[in-house]
Design a protein around this nucleic acid. Sequence first.
DNA 1: TTTT
DNA 2: TTTT
Lengths: 147, 147, 147, 147
Amino acid sequence: MSGINKVILVGHLGKDPEVRHLDGGVTVASFPLATSETYNKDGKRVEQTEWHNIVLWRGLAEVASKYLQKGKLVYIEGKLRTRSFEDKEKVKKYVTEIVAENFTMLGRKSDFEQSPSTTLSSSQHTEPKIDDEFTIHPSDENGDLPF
Amino acid sequence: MSGINKVILVGHLGKDPEVRHLDGGVTVASFPLATSETYNKDGKRVEQTEWHNIVLWRGLAEVASKYLQKGKLVYIEGKLRTRSFEDKEKVKKYVTEIVAENFTMLGRKSDFEQSPSTTLSSSQHTEPKIDDEFTIHPSDENGDLPF
Amino acid sequence: MSGINKVILVGHLGKDPEVRHLDGGVTVASFPLATSETYNKDGKRVEQTEWHNIVLWRGLAEVASKYLQKGKLVYIEGKLRTRSFEDKEKVKKYVTEIVAENFTMLGRKSDFEQSPSTTLSSSQHTEPKIDDEFTIHPSDENGDLPF
Amino acid sequence: MSGINKVILVGHLGKDPEVRHLDGGVTVASFPLATSETYNKDGKRVEQTEWHNIVLWRGLAEVASKYLQKGKLVYIEGKLRTRSFEDKEKVKKYVTEIVAENFTMLGRKSDFEQSPSTTLSSSQHTEPKIDDEFTIHPSDENGDLPF
DNA sequence: TTTT
DNA sequence: TTTT
């Protein structure tokens, strides 16, 4: 049966997006995103940071690589996906990622100098242009990702 | 800085909740949840299922263990948390879980015979009673979970 | 600056979808959706129902009119929009609606006899077919709706 | 049956919060929130702003009145509620509001000088303190609001 | 006007 | 390991 698998994050990029071009010309970008939570433990302020593996495909990857950098604040919507892979010692490992479906840059305009403030979506039509609405359409999000 | 770390799932339990009582009397429940997505590939219908590790603490764990069973359809809201642990061979491993903050049972009443249809929350006050609003208050969600 | 405007509902249709064809051939569907909440007041079980005006455009409207009926349980994702209009006495009024961006039918298969269980989206490509993934692409969601 | 009624907004306050103290000592705060969306129409950049009526109760109202001001960027999670009321001419009118369940201040620290960056929730325990985790517990969100 |  |  159908179900819902939705993730909503607001956090800062831990690194610049890393871009790869797969065989067949598909672009994939990925970066770590930090979401922090502050709470009080025994009278002391404690900050707990959670790191998320964000993956973006095709047009969305291209826009991300252009406009997102380490430190930027971003809203990301996507879905959870757990993949298995073999490390260098041929040991099977699992990693859970957030496959982004759209993102919106938050924070002050000056933080995104070259870009308009806008929402980027993985499922729309026009090609990205500077100073325009970025609307992207990836047709295949099921390719294998070699990392 | 603060951030948002939110997960919204609707899916079916793959197993009955597994309940543990930690030292100090804290109750923890966990179960796998499946969210399925159906799409069309080369004219053929393909179903892709994603499995999520759901973890519930304290009162929420107790209500879950009472009312949720394998196969039930449930709405779950929570946050992502990636933990490291050592397996039997002392190899460090990582697992990403969804720490539930509240859940709502979906589907028909007969699917939850002994229970009222209701939303369960990890941050409210009264103790759960049958045929009543289930409102739970966990005071510590930062305990270590030995599994 | 950019922002986020997102609504997530799970509820039952209060009526069959009402479909309109605007000048220019645009299809619009709408229906009321009930989300109920049960709580305890002075020892008595109280149910509070909230009614939402759901609006769907173009392909999404067409799929909704085909597969959704009064009483069905559905997950809806969309955005809030408040419109003004004049009633018969020429008094200006406001109404807040949820413009659906995608929906997923929940509940048992038999509840959606003629349809596969699937997610319908307002921003994808193929045309809807029975027993296929329903993927819709509306290009204009800013038309005026005369009701 | 149970349902889900959830709203997620990221936007800027249009005004400072307006605070009222109801009979019985209940505090209510409200403010308009703008969420803007930018899209391209006929080659021109168009910005569309949606205004939302945000309502906060009790402790959450008090924290909001202390830390939120006109222009601030905030993440708000809540639920939709449509109320009827009579205007001065005794005409029955309807208004749809977002009853906040928690909020998180976004943007740079300097935007919230006197406050720590943190998430405020309508369903937790400790009283708000400066430089502490703000956790609030309202026990009644069903009071009538005279505005 | 839904559902349990 | 769920569900359809």
